[in-house]
Amino acid sequence: MLSYALKRLAILAVSLAVASLVIFLVVEVAPGDPASYMLGINARPDTVAALRTELGLDLPKWERYLAWIGGMLQGDFGTSYTYRAPVAQMVTERLWVSLPLALYALTLSTLIAFPAGIYAAARRGRAGDIGVMGATQLGIAVPNFWFAMLLVLLFALKLRWFSAGGFPGWETPLAALKALTLPAVALALPQAAILARVMRSSLIDILHEDFIRTARAKGLSRRQALWRHGVRNALIPVLTILGLQFSFLLAGAIIIEQVFFLPGLGRLIFQAITQRDLIVVESVVMLLVFAVISVNFLTDLAYAAADPRLRAAR
């Protein structure tokens, strides 16, 4: 188990290094000089040059890359070109919206999908299964941001149960949670539809395995065999999807934040794009990629915990 975890950790480190290099190089080839962009067209060349020195833009590429990475390792993400504020601080504030939103949605989606998937697999081919499958078929076809607009239309504008957008801050936790509820539902339902389908098909595959027949020959009922032997084995492929979903949710959160005017990473990154604040774009993208890679790492560990064969094999 330890050597397996170490190997995964090594892969994690290499992936992060390569990803950071890719991001840095992509941003490097971006046309336009941030310094002249910040100062406007009419800026005097010596002012621009001074700013370039201040921002470290005149250093060789590899030095800037190392400085960027070294800074990030110490929690220093650089200084925003436009806001002249530390990127780390801006990002941290926004993360407090985006991360809880993604986790909230992940929890909701799991809570809905697991029972729905297991229920459908257990009643395969019967009315309950067909109903759940129909609902998930619709669920995966719905764009989450449009679903979010419908939720706003119904629950905020018509019924007035929730506000249509905005975020009160975590000083009032209940109000904050309430403000995140509609966005989380909008994010969670389409993902839950996918997850439920994976859960169902994975469970149905497992129910065809020989060891389920063995369990039935021991005297377990269909239901007992499903719960005791089916679900745990079916969970193994579902975990992979769950890991992938986190990155979709994080990306989805960026879009959903636009619908609900939430001050999260999404808002930050779109502002940064319009203002060509590349250091912010670079850092936020790196952060997102870091989140995805670490979640994949955790998924791998969860995988090994769920499957003893993996623990031993490597």
Partner: peptide, 19 residues
């Protein structure tokens, strides 16, 4: 099943729950 009648199958590699 299991109490009055027990059963053994052909393929031992897949007849046991792997986890």
């Amino acid at each position: 099943r299991g109490r009055e009648i027990g059963m053994i199958f052909q393929e031992p590699m897949t007849a046991l729950n792997p986890v």
